[in-house]
Design a protein around this nucleic acid. Structure first.
Lengths: 226, 226
DNA sequence: GTCTATAAAGGGATAGAC
DNA sequence: GTCTATCCCTTTATAGAC
């Protein structure tokens, strides 16, 4: 299905195999990096340990010594990927006003989830979640859920300052995030050739933020009456 | 990774292999059905033609005669899956009022995309889109895009009747659909064990519809000023 | 812990008869 | 179009020396 060879040279990318011995920790990291490349590129079942070893250097037996088996490698990979999002969650961008803050959060979040590697990770994890629930669980908790909780916290604080009507911050946070993700994430997921420009993205964020604020401005109810 | 065997019997599900000959058309359909089961269950690379033949009956050579190769089988499968959504798109549910219509659309759409087979198809296609863009394209156009266009059409008509402020129906449709999908789709995708109850789903739809209407009631602008 | 070599199994695809 | 039998390659995982 995939021409997994380099289109220019007709061969696989250079192994970057330093002949020098590495420390176990460094070797572990090199394997994880290579595994990341290969898994994200070919999918779980399509990736071979051989291909990973070829990129990382070292030998196959080392992989099994360090990670047990193929699934252990995937688990380690997803767990490590979780740390990327942590940076976003820990330091939510802020702006001068509520509206500016929401815009900053929106742009930052959208940039993050549309990074090619992040999209590929999403594909990989979604594809394997049916057969490996543990993987899906790690990804969900450290990804979408962590972000939603953090945004909800932000909205609750804003509501506390009277800037927002938010009786149910969790629900509102999801509403905001889902609208932000919009069609762009699906397009990226299904590999559309049409990549949105930066201007289109900014316009989308502006639209979502202003619409969102119109819904939840003080004086409007944030949840339905019943 | 996956215990692809039946947990109760310890074996694969019975082949259901009628010894009687089938017509080519019937055989084609039987293979597609079996391929659907196996692909959705094990993923593309994890599925073997052997396993498909075992379920469908017949022989491996027939599969290649009818579909060319493994990828041809996947393409045929996704193309067929497109027809499921067509039913939804062709006959958008309606209600007595605009609000009732939106609720009916919302419930119907959410039911559709949360069907286990539909979720599995989403996983499968997302997982392969990176290596097989054609598959992603078919799925996107006949799935998310078709729905969005149809909902946009509905909103445009409502705006024409003065029930709604919708200067940009496409954008608004996406806004509505994305909010509807909400966290539920992600939860299903990542195989959460916590399945939302029907009541929770209904409450979610009600929340989205009422929030959406508050944004776009006549008198409010549907897009930002600039 | 790391290497080479190999075991053991399963995969996609086809040949050739009917 | 359909079958049986088979080719040939790749895969995961391990054995055993260092």
């Amino acid at each position: 299905m995939a021409p997994a060879t380099n289109p220019t040279t007709g061969e696989a990318p250079p192994p970057a195999r330093p002949r020098q011995r590495r420390t176990p920790a460094a070797q572990r990291q090199a394997i994880l990096q290579a595994a990341s490349d290969v898994f994200l590129e070919r999918g779980y079942a399509g990736a071979s340990i051989d291909a990973i070893v070829e990129r990382a250097g070292g030998s196959k037996a080392t992989v099994y010594a360090l990670f047990g088996n193929k699934e252990g490698l995937l688990t380690a990979l997803v767990s490590q990927g979780a740390e990327t999002l942590a940076a976003f969650v820990d330091a939510l961008p802020v702006g001068a006003s509520l509206e500016e803050s929401l815009r900053a959060i929106g742009r930052s979040y959208l940039d993050l989830i549309l990074q090619p590697r992040r999209v590929a990770l999403f594909r990989l994890v979604a594809g394997e979640s049916g057969r490996c629930p543990q993987i899906g669980d790690i990804f969900y908790r450290t990804g979408p859920q962590a972000v939603a909780l953090r945004v909800a916290e932000f909205l609750r604080a804003a509501a506390g300052r009277g800037q927002l009507e938010a009786p149910d911050p969790e629900r509102l946070a999801h509403f905001f995030i889902d609208a932000l993700r919009g069609d762009h994430h699906n397009l990226a997921l299904f590999n559309s050739t049409r990549t949105p420009t930066a201007a289109e993205m900014a316009r989308h964020v502006d639209f979502v933020v202003s619409t969102f604020l119109r819904c939840c401005a003080p004086g409007n109810a944030g949840t339905p009456s019943p």
